[in-house]
Amino acid sequence: MSGTKRETGFTFTIDGVEVKAYAGMTIMEAADEAGVYIPRLCDHEGLRHQGSCRVCTVKAGGRSVSACTQPAAPGQAVENETARLNKMRRDLVEMLFHEGNHLCPICEASGNCELQAMAYRLDMTEATRFPYLEPCRALDASHPDIALDTNRCISCGRCIRASQDVDGKGIFGYVGRGIHRRVAVNGENLADTDAEVSDHAISKEVCPVGCIIRKRVGFVTPIGEREFDKGLIGHEIEEKRK
């Protein structure tokens, strides 16, 4: 959460760059304001922090912490863009690819997808040795305006938090443990819930990948003009510093 006591400002560094922060701010919030991008997938502006994808892992005070949840501390030296951390993040992103079924060339989210964009940013350019897990998940096209394809779900929980906290609905929820954990809907299928295409949870910006699909608007933006065709993920934050 952003600091309420604005008067108690302090500074710390991220990769040597001095960053200003206020009491109660997370490392990531301070970094964003200062124009330093820390990779992320589960954290999203306007939603409460969950700290689950761990792509934002940084080194602070000698420990690995998730920047989206760790409070900034005065004088601390935070490491972000190191080769070691980026390798670890790339491994994490690869693991997310292997956990689901991702066929980018035929995916509606391609070019707008944060997972894909993160893979590009982290130089994931070839297939890897990690074994694929190849789950088998049903498509839910029951709703007149929305389709749900959790084969691409990275379990970030953004849809859950948006529906519970912003829409006040609780359309989505997690079920299960371990590798069996997944996102489910509050009913037999999506049509059985109160989901509406105007919900924040259903909006384009909430699902980072291509799970939540608004019917009849797919592919309206041609490939080449999509969000990450314009620049690497995070470029908007980084441009603040230029």
């Binding site: 956990e99 379990s155 443990r177 590798i179 954990r181």
Partner: peptide
């Protein structure tokens, strides 16, 4: 570890599963 992972975070959820399979 794979059986007891709660599944909240990616590294443990997926990593423990992959380690077991390996």
């Amino acid at each position: 570890a794979a059986r007891e992972s709660c599944g909240k975070c990616g590294p443990c959820r997926i990593g423990s599963k992959k380690a077991m399979e390996t």
